[in-house]
């Protein structure tokens, strides 16, 4: 196994970086959708049941089936992989964005409005900082989920650490599977740790304890 690592460390590194790109690319795009959608759903509560139901249905589609389903439309590679990962994470992200904004004490919003803050100031200076810890909690859970599901994306040629796992399976090579597993798990653990620290920090800030 040590031999394999020393011989192929550049390949492994490339796959690891691919995986990072896939994960955080998908996460960034997912947030671009989830932030406005979650925020707007707090305003139009009647729509939220419908939207969350749809996102819930997407969430339970098995990932292998979802990737396969996308091939006729988006082909193989990164594109369908990112599409699927973005779609999966919407439920977690949108729900947390909604909860984040809904958890703000209405008196704070009323005081802000009453003193003449416009929409932008109210959102940027009051609502967002107070909702951020819960939103970040969603980002953390979504990130860990995407890192895991992202391995399966190798099956449709999206690259990443899943390549090591699938090769290990086909070639019956245990060390590839072990290296792949360790790297994926480490990435998930480190991501979780960093985001959790940030989340706690922001929570303290929102409560005025920092």
């Amino acid at each position: 196994m040590v031999n394999y690592i020393t011989n192929y460390y550049d390949t492994i590194l490339a796959l690891f970086l691919d995986h990072l790109r896939l994960t955080f690319g998908a996460l960034a795009i997912a947030l671009l959708f989830a932030l406005p959608v979650g925020y707007l759903l707090t305003r139009w509560k009647s729509l939220s049941v419908l939207v969350l139901s749809i996102l819930g249905i997407i969430y339970v589609i098995p990932s292998m089936a979802f990737f396969a389903l996308l091939i006729p439309f988006l082909g193989l590679g990164m594109k369908p992989a990112i599409f699927a990962l973005v779609a999966y994470s919407q439920l977690i992200l949108v729900r947390n964005v909604m909860v984040g904004f809904q958890s703000i004490d209405q008196a704070i919003i009323e005081a802000g409005k009453g003193m003449g803050l416009n929409w932008f100031h109210l959102f940027w200076k009051i609502e967002l900082p107070l909702a951020l810890p819960i939103i970040l909690g969603g980002v953390r859970i979504a990130a860990v989920a995407i890192i895991g599901i992202g391995t399966i994306a190798a099956w449709i040629n999206a690259g990443g650490l899943g390549v090591l796992l699938f090769e290990g399976l086909y070639q019956n090579s245990t060390h590839k599977i072990i290296i792949g597993t360790i790297l994926v798990s480490t990435l998930a653990l480190i991501t979780n740790y960093i985001l959790l620290r940030l989340e706690n920090r922001l929570a303290l800030k929102a409560k005025g304890q920092l």
Binding site: A107, I108, L130, G208
Partner: peptide, 9 residues
């Protein structure tokens, strides 16, 4: 207002 509504952060 009664609930004061200071910005906690």
């Amino acid at each position: 207002i009664q609930q004061i509504g200071l910005f906690p952060h």
